[in-house]
Nucleic acid binder design. Structure first.
Lengths: 365, 365
DNA sequence: CCCTATTACGCAACGCTGTTGCTAAATTCT
DNA sequence: AGAATTTAGCAACAGCGTTGCGTAATAGGG
């Protein structure tokens, strides 16, 4: 991955990405919309729009007549000009989705993975799933930019390595990105599952998506974080082990070796059939996150949560509201993910699109 | 505060900040040092160095003779060309420091604040303290760029407001930055105390300071976070209420209204004279942060911690090491702050210097 | 119907920064 | 003395956003 320095090529990519982001958020836009959103001059925006139009990423779609004065050209993204495939690799299933440039999920397919599957088995499943997906769906001339993989960790996003995968035996230091690129003949992006998930939520909500978390309750409890306008992965791509934070000192021993982890306390309550108590435990953890990170938005997701969505939503929303010091200026929105079971796979695809059309990431020193 | 768009002015500020950062980190440097660290071309670096030299921020300090070949010019920062004053506002004391362009603390002074002091009382104390400090210290032609204030919260960094200050009655929605700028006749930067503190650590450690936290144990327990190369403040500047995260479900009721907060559990142990147990409680909370955020470095600080520094350091380091899944690639360094009691005031001053000479912060949308 | 006012867009030149290509400077060694 | 090596500087170029200005497209009033 070549290093990005601050020069005029960066300016081009950065400002084009801003226009794309405006297009994705508001549907249709004009030059003046982008001027207001970005602070660039009208002339600069015209130039950026012209380049994106030549590249086929946006197109004029009509005019707005202001009454007196020249009509303004209205633009929109060309959603079907670019696609990405996203994969959510869980312990027993592989979910694939096809996502367009606007972030719309066009197809979703789940296939089983063998128990304790190996890298070659995953690659074969990916290849046949992608072949089936691109066979079924006519991309209509749209380019397939690559494949994003959201997977259980721990993994090393920067190097494309799966360090180990909890509950799987054959995944020690596997260079998954490299071998997948060779096997699939497409660019591949690899990230932790919850990081892909929070990226999907960031795409759904647009620029107003401030500091936020995605809480995933599905074969364990994890969290993905969106901080300062970007996904937070941590020093070793290991951030998000939310389920393994202690909330009950001297509580039951967890599989991770600690005592009183949120996950084990939650699971004991759930196994006792006490969903309300399980939900309240998650709520305690969520408020801990708010106290630590001051998040504006918490999104709840995951198959195990979706069995009792209202119970979890109510418990978390109530705890967030009831926590002392909640005032008019210190609010946190709590929602369920609108992407449902596709959230991780969709986010993985969006990460691929971000690599091509998103804000370039400077590497200061 | 004018908005920063991505244009050539941004490129200038950004690349100059990189050179300044290299200078701060390595002491002396050459053109080739900066080329390697930043990825810019040698010619670009020469241009940046020339501009900084004209501005008096760096200067040639010698040559390195490579044996065969033209000698390379060696440069250094001009530390005494710029200063900032930092203030740490606690409930009963005001600490002021004078910091130069290299981050060196030249003077530190503590004065008492009246119980339950008011904004006018603070402003008077700041004014007389700054006057005393600039009187005692001949700045030798160096420019005083402004005053940084690190204060207890909650506060609104973006708007320069103190929303309220825990334990103080006269601080509801006080526009402290604005009134301080008027009173002092200097630019003022306002931030939460622990955010200033972590900024000081980031300056001390340089570019290798990845994702990190500063844990402050002093009249309460708080945490400042350095994530993705910048301070994390949260949606409402309220991040860092680390002491008010629950670690003991159904534990003792905390002043914040929750039960089993780290702070109250820690304080009960400390008041019982059981320093080892108090330290272990903090260690549980620190490992929770590592699980959530995957930090590479944790720095411990604060007057109450410094009463038993080795006990806290040992407990935290042991817990970090013993946590399951610690492997060769998943390590976290634990240290005591080398700035001691000055860490917050020094960081506040460094934030002012960063505003002038640090990386400009783009406002995407 | 013509002219003015209003709103938007495009052209051309400019300003600035980094990049590219090349030359000069300063040294050591053969 | 000349070649080789390493560094620095000059000039032109490339590219992007900004500035300044003119053109286009409309509605309404005289």
């Amino acid at each position: 991955m070549t290093r990005i320095t601050a020069d005029v090529t960066f300016l081009r990519g950065y400002n084009q990405a801003l226009v794309m982001a405006v297009g994705r958020t508001v549907g249709t836009f004009e030059r003046s919309t982008v001027v207001q959103a970005t602070g660039l001059t009208p002339q600069a925006v015209s130039k950026v729009i012209a380049r994106l139009t030549v590249d086929g990423l946006i197109r004029p779609t009509g005019v707005r007549r202001p009454g007196v004065g020249k009509p303004a050209v209205v633009y929109e993204l060309v959603p079907h000009s670019r696609y990405a495939i996203g994969a959510h690799v869980a312990r027993r299933t592989l979910r694939l989705v096809l996502v367009d440039l606007a972030g719309t999920v066009h197809h979703s397919a789940v296939s089983p993975l063998p128990r304790d599957f190996t890298p070659p088995q995953l690659l074969d499943a990916l290849a046949s799933g992608i072949k089936a997906m691109t066979g079924v769906n006519d991309l209509g001339g749209g380019q397939l930019t690559g494949v994003g993989i959201g997977m259980i960790g721990p993994l090393d996003h920067a190097h494309g390595l799966v360090r180990g995968a909890h509950g799987l035996r054959h995944w020690h230091d596997v260079p998954l990105r490299e071998i997948a690129e060779k096997h699939l003949g497409l660019p591949v992006h690899l990230d932790k599952d919850v990081t892909a998930g929070i990226t999907a939520e960031a795409w759904r909500h647009g620029a107003t998506f401030g500091d936020a978390a995605l809480i995933m309750i599905e074969s364990g409890i994890g969290g993905g974080f969106w901080l300062g306008g970007t996904a937070h992965r941590g020093a070793h791509t290991n951030a998000g082990e939310f389920g393994h934070t202690v909330v009950d000192l001297n509580g039951p021993r967890c599989v991770c070796g600690r005592h009183g982890c949120l996950e084990i306390v939650h699971n004991h309550a759930a196994e006792a059939g006490d969903v309300a108590r399980a939900a309240r435990v998650v709520a305690v953890g969520v408020v801990n996150l708010l106290q630590t990170l001051d998040l504006a938005h918490v999104v709840l997701a995951g198959a195990d949560l979706l069995r009792h969505p209202e119970a979890y939503l109510a418990a978390v929303a109530e705890a967030v509201q009831a926590d002392v010091r909640r005032t008019a200026w210190l609010t946190t929105k709590v929602t369920l993910s609108s992407l449902g079971a596709d959230v991780i796979a969709a986010g993985a695809a969006m990460q691929v699109l971000d690599q091509h059309y998103g804000i370039p990431e400077l590497a200061p020193i």
